[in-house]
């Protein structure tokens, strides 16, 4: 599965990626020029191994037609903002629009309020973000790439959701096109489940206990 990390610049996208794929965090990280790319596999409750390709994008770029390549083939997007910077939350709407314009229609989107460790600097209330996510039919989680809380959960939750959507789709394939089932893709070959295979990805880690 291809998942993209999007959101304003300096909200912590690269650190979320490095925390998830390498369990690393850096306070002095460089700004992302272009794209970064990493993979990791996780296992689902029913023993499937889901292989994720994660694209980390530069936050400044508002990719319109010419560079919407980032979104191509993505089945999931983590839309990240910084809970201590209101502007980054205000811009979430525009990123969502960007996704709707350029990504595929069925893309699974999760709103991620990062830097939850900065409690004393919080300006975006959890309830507000929750309400926004609900209104827009996307899921929501707060994370901290710094102390690692919920990072694993954010990625595994979106990957599981994608997996479930895909499985549901293949089960309901007869009903495709009836309108109400909202099939996620017409082309079943998009469904990729890699069984117990770990070629270039980091070994699947167990979910952290909190």
């Amino acid at each position: 599965y291809t998942v993209v990390l999007i959101g304003d610049s300096a909200v912590g996208k690269s650190n979320l990626l490095s925390r998830f794929t390498r369990d690393e965090f850096s306070l002095e990280s460089k700004s992302t020029i272009g794209v970064e790319f990493a993979t990791r596999s996780i296992s689902t409750d029913d023993g499937k191994v889901l292989k994720a390709q994660i694209w980390d994008t530069a936050g400044q770029e508002r990719y319109r037609a010419i560079t919407s390549a980032y979104y191509r083939g993505a089945v999931g997007a983590l839309l990240v903002y910084d809970i201590s910077k209101y502007e980054t939350f205000s811009n979430v709407e525009r990123w969502l629009k960007e996704l709707r314009d350029h990504a595929e229609n069925h893309i699974e989107v999760m709103l991620v309020g990062n830097k939850s460790d900065l409690r004393h600097l919080r300006v975006v209330m959890t309830e507000d973000a929750e309400a926004f996510a609900q209104e827009n039919g996307i899921s929501f989680i707060e994370t901290s790439a710094l102390d690692a809380s919920n990072v694993e959960e954010a990625f595994s939750s979106i990957l599981t959701k994608i997996y479930e959507k895909v499985s549901r789709k293949s089960m309901n394939s007869d009903a495709a096109g009836s309108g109400k089932t909202k099939p996620m893709a017409n082309n079943a070959s998009k469904v990729i489940v890699v069984d117990n295979e770990n070629d270039d990805a980091a070994p699947a880690k167990k979910k952290k206990c909190c």
Partner: peptide
């Protein structure tokens, strides 16, 4: 009619990507 964000459409582009992804798999 659904008024939901995920319409049923898939693009030709998407199909091409699907083929690529399948190759990756």
């Amino acid at each position: 009619d659904d008024g939901a964000a995920d319409g049923a459409a898939d693009t030709a582009d998407g199909a091409a990507v699907a083929a690529t992804d399948a190759a990756v798999a």
